[in-house]
Write a protein that binds this DNA or RNA. Sequence first.
DNA 1: GCTTCTCTACGAAAGTCTTCGTTGACATGT
DNA 2: ACATGTCAACGAAGACTTTCGTAGAGAAGC
Lengths: 129, 129
Amino acid sequence: MAKTMRPTDAELEILQVLWDEGPSTVRAVLESIQRRRPNAGYTTVLKLMQIMVEKELLVRDESARTHIYRAKAPRQTTQKRLLSDLAVRAFGGSTNQLVLQALQAKKIMEEEIAEIRQLLDELEQGGAK
Amino acid sequence: MAKTMRPTDAELEILQVLWDEGPSTVRAVLESIQRRRPNAGYTTVLKLMQIMVEKELLVRDESARTHIYRAKAPRQTTQKRLLSDLAVRAFGGSTNQLVLQALQAKKIMEEEIAEIRQLLDELEQGGAK
DNA sequence: GCTTCTCTACGAAAGTCTTCGTTGACATGT
DNA sequence: ACATGTCAACGAAGACTTTCGTAGAGAAGC
């Protein structure tokens, strides 16, 4: 029903866990988060995940007493949405500027450069008309 | 005083105007924003810009009655901060993954590919040990 | 059966973001 | 000097985010 929104910080933290570890219970997500942030509370994570079901960011299996949650959209879809969103908000809509800036922001390992080169080759072959 | 925060959506909209058009008055920023969003209100923009001065996102020249605002941090610095932030929040800290995803998300023009290739060349020369 | 533990659900509190109405100061033109 | 218009300042409302206390239902152990 609701249009696809940008996940908040806390929501993204939960999505990362579910993308990494697959469908999980609240407790499993909590424990994963606590590895990095030991002060995270159970009811906080539960509440967030409930809200995320309402927002249709997550899907919940209630067939057992302990519910199982999974991310509704795959990781890449969400990542692309966030990138496109950032391109508009901070780069005047230019994804290309975003990429250039990202490349300059970080020293890149040589293997990674090769990886990107290869992708460029494929794009050039596939896209050239 | 406050640590450098991530600008909000409305703040970023104002920053874009100031980056594009240089130091400006509230009214000038408002009119620029109204070109895309005619319902934007004067006091809303004013209040936001006042808050942004407190947050040290903007600097204000109060010497004249009509104050002049400018972005404190240059465009690229803020863009890099946002990219690095997104890399952590949505890409498990991998800027490289972010770049790959951004490249795949968009069809890239050939000239742009050349531009990126050139950047890669420079990076390879400068960074290879 | 009773106690203890785990889980979901609910609601409220505190913080932030965005919007705008109102006010008073200052400027301009006549 | 007075009317009109522009500006900064303030305060408050409404929405959203994040946190957590509390309560009740069900499961497990004694």
